[in-house]
């Protein structure tokens, strides 16, 4: 393989990973934007998402790579799996907020953040127990199609990811920009007290943020399974940390920032894996994060100066 085809191949890989990180990063950013809370439970909501998707696909009689679907059945199964996974994870996120975080809403300090770490470990251990710590083979109903593009290979999985992730992100973007509840979310993020005095019910806004963020994490989890063809109770930590980095890199609280940050982290991971060494990928990712934060503490898209009032 020539250098340019390697570069192209890693760009393809990086965009796929990046789409997954971006979906996951959006959840961090949505919740941070509204509650100024870093939700570490998000790591394992993502992990659970991959298992929900696994169980749904198994429910359709799929296992491993043995059964391949095409046409309408394939589309139907994928849509159903994404819908159930996202809905389930969304509700899980809402439940986490309702049960563990709302009682702490007016408590200042790190109590709520520490709680999310605790919740994260609870989710982690539940799945550990259910799966007996085994790595699971993720059903892949996609036909093994692939295309040669300029010396690089694009698989059907990757095309699927490139289709699904932007649709979800555009959907989120439109919701936040145009819908009544989305505007209430933005208003609450910018001035919670003023939003409340316009009649915005903060609890509803917080619930919406948790639902949407967790649903996107679920979609990310399913994409992880389809991309790597496996899942395990361990996947939340690495992917979650990288996605969190992506959110900070883009400017936490900033929706487009999380999308761009996710793609960047995906590309960095792919390039450094190819051209340096896989073991160095995280070192490079976090070094770039440190550099960005030194020179732009509020992230690439973060607000540098407070707006005048």
């Amino acid at each position: 393989m020539t250098f340019s085809s390697l570069l192209l191949q890693q760009t393809i890989n990086g965009l796929s990973l990046g789409a997954m990180y971006a979906l996951l990063a959006l959840g961090f950013t949505l919740i941070y934007g509204i509650l100024e809370l870093i939700n570490f439970a998000h790591f394992n909501v993502f992990m659970i998402g991959s298992f929900v998707a696994l169980w749904v696909l198994q429910g359709f009689g799929l296992s491993g790579q043995a059964i391949v679907l095409t046409g309408l059945p394939l589309v139907g199964v994928l849509v159903a799996a994404f819908a159930v996974t996202m809905g389930g994870c969304g509700l899980l996120g809402v439940a986490i907020e309702r049960v563990t975080l709302r009682p702490l809403r007016n408590v200042t300090g790190p109590a709520a953040m520490i709680t999310t770490i605790g919740v994260s470990y609870i989710l982690f251990n539940i799945v550990l127990l259910i799966t007996s710590a085994q790595t699971m083979n993720f059903p892949n109903p996609l036909p093994p199609l692939q295309w040669n593009v300029g010396g690089a290979v694009v698989t059907l999985q990757e095309l699927l990811i490139w289709g699904v992730a932007p649709i979800l992100m555009l959907g989120l973007w439109a919701f936040v920009q145009k819908s009544r509840l989305g505007k209430a979310m933005r208003a609450t993020a910018q001035d919670p007290e003023a939003a409340r005095m316009m009649g915005v019910e903060v609890d509803k806004v917080v619930m919406t943020a948790f639902f949407l963020g967790s649903a996107l994490a679920g979609a990310g989890g399913m994409i992880f399974g389809l991309y790597y063809n496996f899942t395990s109770f361990l996947i939340g930590f690495t992917a979650g940390l990288r996605a969190f980095t992506a959110a900070v890199l883009g400017g936490i609280g900033n929706v487009p920032g999380a999308m761009v940050g996710g793609i960047l982290i995906g590309l960095i991971e792919a390039y450094s894996g190819q051209f340096i060494a896989t073991e160095w990928a995280d070192v490079i990712i976090f070094s770039i994060l440190v550099l960005v934060l030194v020179f732009r503490p509020s992230g690439l898209f973060g607000r540098v100066a407070p707006t005048k009032s």
Partner: peptide
């Protein structure tokens, strides 16, 4: 102090 939503 007005308290508009500054980025809307």
């Amino acid at each position: 102090a007005r308290r508009l939503f500054p980025r809307m």
